[in-house]
Design a protein around this nucleic acid. Structure first.
Length: 593
RNA sequence: GGUCGCGUAGCUCAGCUGGAUAGAGCAUCUGCCUUCUAAGCAGACGGUCAUGGGUUCGAAUCCCGUCGCGAUCACCA
């Protein structure tokens, strides 16, 4: 299934135009698409664009072209013309050969090496609180986009960036120091990231109390916010951190280590991983050096107060600060440093950032600023900008307390999968470790598919109360289709599939074949657009098509040995493609369910 | 206000590099388990593709305007 029949048809059409009408037409400009399912045929050529050169009516043109293709393209067995649409039928032997070669290919769908090196940065958590629903979408997108890019033929590295410094983590540190009584993950049994998050909330609570107190004493809101004792203390702590105060650094390290241990548990449950970690505490100084270099070379400029800026007004953007007047770094400074360090590490052609679309402006600025610095990798930056996950009551914002915790959600999904599975009552040993594994597979499959099936750039709605369906267009639907095929295979036993040389395909058999044939193109499309939803939709379509075939045709007890072998081959390839595609989405498939 | 994005069935989403009567799932209703797993299959119901114009043989898809929703325009990250 490597040489693409659609491409062959296009090329032949171009040749036909040359021969029949003595005109030149680019093969790529000819519209070849799959025939509508209520028409006879496999592929359709839209002939309207050719009328300009044929100077004939649509039907005549289509007939000319159809006759030419039938005579010159061996795979074309016949054609029919409806209005300006030329519907081509391909020979059954073409489809069967195509199935045979795909079955022999152990990595069917894998792209040829592109030589491109790509880094994918995703997750990017702050180290002052646990992961939430937004991180889940981010992690799923990042992990699957990386997998898809790699399968499409690129050399891919996954990286994470920890926002491990700044005022936020100091808030947790301070609150723990003052109110924690030495509580640790071990002493409390609380997961490290949740423990640190707990003190972040404590800080906020105390801060608000103090502000109210000061307001009661007659201060204005703004004054109260500035003068709250705990606020002054946290600012002092940040300065001590920046100055490298040993005690502060030790506390910072301890609390961050708790968070990393906690995150790792969540990463494992999510099934995501990283080839390398970056820490802003290690890159913000590199960024500062870059800014100073830029200032020295005249790319940036300094204002009277000492702050350093980049002027992007020539690009339709604003002036942006790169270093504060006190010489400290801003968000952008760190990202400059991280980008530069990453290029040292990888020399990548593309640097993909999986970050929510609220930061579109930031990434434009980052890219243009690196461009101004003359960095060769600036052009390779791609911001995979995804929409926020909204809850029924509106947008998710942690400071409004309307947060869905990642660990909670994972637990609930697995519990929902368990309840549903037990209700169906198909399990032999509901208490076994194998059963628990199955609940995890189904629950995570439902969650991951739910989030990956929508176009990344669109915001999406998540309704935790209604939970997530396990029927219909869902992960478990695809998993179930896979499990049924595995069941047939164990029933039939280990027989060598020999595809028949002469066989007349049924309509449903052919539908499955055509669907399977799309897979390599789907991978390329998904990679080109950095869009896992392309693969997700495809798996559903394939499973759906296969299920139709499955209920209508007997496989193990097929009417003839030829039919049995062909259908086993079809089932086998379908299972391989479903499992392979799901792997790219980070979703497991169960052998039984 | 400037910039960017979005608006398709009651709900959640496909389709958007222009092509045939706009597709799924959920929900509601109706059938199908003595033959490979019914987490399935078949069917019914449901749409002025926000709106007005334009380009085209042809527009949900491209262009312009309008309305609605969101993000962003911090010496926050």
């Amino acid at each position: 299934m490597t040489n693409n029949i659609e491409q062959q048809i296009r090329t032949a059409c171009a040749a036909a135009v040359k021969e029949l009408y003595n005109a030149d037409m680019e093969a790529a400009s000819i519209a070849v698409e799959r025939t509508n399912k209520d028409q006879i045929g496999d592929y359709t050529v839209v002939v309207f664009p050719l009328l300009r050169v044929s100077k004939k009516k649509p039907e005549e043109t289509a007939n000319d072209l159809g006759a030419y293709l039938q005579a010159n393209v061996p795979q074309v067995s016949g054609f029919s013309v409806i209005k300006g649409f030329l519907n081509l039928s391909l020979t059954d032997s073409f489809w069967i050969e195509t199935l045979g070669s795909a079955l022999h290919n152990h990595e069917y769908g894998k792209g040829t090496p592109t030589g491109q090196k790509i880094t994918v940065e995703y997750c990017g958590p702050n180290t002052n609180k646990p992961l939430h629903l937004g991180h889940i979408r981010n992690m799923l997108l990042g992990y699957s986009v990386a997998s898809i890019l790699e399968f499409a033929g690129n050399e891919v590295s996954k990286v994470n960036i920890y926002n491990d410094r700044g005022i936020a983590i100091c808030k947790s540190m301070l609150a723990w120091q003052q109110f924690g009584n030495g509580e640790t993950p071990e002493s409390s049994g609380i997961k490290g990231d949740h423990l640190v998050g707990k003190y972040y909330v404590v800080f906020d609570k105390k801060y608000k109390e103090q502000v109210e107190q000061l307001k009661a004493e007659g201060l204005t809101e703004d004054e109260a916010k500035k003068k709250a004792p705990i606020q002054l203390e946290v600012q002092a702590m940040l300065l001590k951190w920046e100055a490298g105060d040993a005690e502060t650094i030790a506390l910072w390290k301890q609390m961050n280590d708790w968070v990393y241990a906690g995150f790792q548990v969540t990463f494992d449950k999510m099934g995501v991983d990283f080839d390398r970690d970056y820490f802003e505490s290690e890159t913000y100084l590199l960024g500062r050096d870059l800014v100073l270099e830029g200032l020295a070379s005249g790319v940036f400029f300094k204002k009277e107060d000492g702050s350093i800026w980049v002027d992007l007004t020539d690009k339709g953007l604003d002036q942006k600060v790169l270093l504060r007047s006190d010489g400290t770094s801003v968000y952008l400074t760190q990202d400059l440093g991280t980008a530069d360090l990453r290029y040292d590490h990888y020399h990548m052609d593309r640097n993909v950032y999986v970050v929510a679309d609220e930061q579109n402006y930031h990434f434009k600025v980052l890219q243009l600023t690196l461009e101004k610095l003359g960095k060769p990798y600036a052009a390779g930056i791609y911001h995979l900008s995804y929409g926020l996950v909204e809850l029924p009551h509106g947008r998710m914002k942690s400071r409004e307390g309307n947060v869905v915790d990642a660990d909670d959600l994972i637990r609930e999904m697995v519990a929902a999968a368990k309840a549903q599975t037990l209700e169906l009552g198909k399990l032999e040993n509901p208490e076994s470790e194998e059963a628990e594994e199955l609940f995890r597979t189904i629950g995570m499959g439902a969650l991951k598919y739910f989030m990956l099936r929508v176009d990344p750039k669109k915001k999406m709605l998540f309704n935790p109360e209604e939970s997530i369906d396990l029927q219909g267009q869902t992960g478990p639907f695809v998993q179930y289709s896979y499990a049924r095929i595995q069941s047939i295979k164990t029933k039939v036993g280990d027989i060598k599939i020999e595809l028949p040389a002469n066989y007349t395909l049924s309509a449903l058999e052919k539908e499955v074949l055509i669907e399977l044939y799309q897979y390599p193109a789907i991978i390329q499309e998904s990679a080109r657009n950095f869009d896992p939803s392309v693969v997700a939709s495809y798996t559903y379509n394939l499973a759906k098509t296969f299920n139709k075939f499955y209920v209508d045709h007997s496989i193990a007890n097929a009417e003839t040995p030829e039919a049995k072998h062909l259908r086993l081959g079809l089932a086998d390839l379908t299972a391989k493609v479903l499992a392979g595609a799901f792997k790219l989405l980070g979703i497991d498939v169960p052998e039984r369910m």
